[in-house]
Amino acid sequence: MIPLSLVASVAVLGLVGIGLFGLLVTRHLIKVVVGLQVLVKGALVALVLAGRITGQVQVAQSMALTVIVADTIVSVVALALAVQVRRQFGTLDVRALSALRR
């Protein structure tokens, strides 16, 4: 039987990798939010796994809960911003937002 920690490790690597890849290649703001979500879910699994390995399950649980809350807020704000970007710029391409560039 495959050990649980191996499954979790593969899940972490897979989710974080997919998330990062998504952030790396996409220019669509909604897809950016989706990529971020996938990445953070990978990090969540990593936290739970770390708690299991070190035996500090409660610490890992409370941190995971904190991450879930923070992550939800980030998504909500990002999607709200996306709505505003669509209204202001008429597009969801993140390149339209690079106003920092001179």
Partner: peptide, 17 residues
């Protein structure tokens, strides 16, 4: 150093990686 701040998300993620 300002030139490194081009504001393009993909480049920033690449730099993090």
């Amino acid at each position: 150093l300002r030139t490194t701040q081009n504001g393009v998300l993909n480049w920033n993620v690449a730099a993090i990686l």
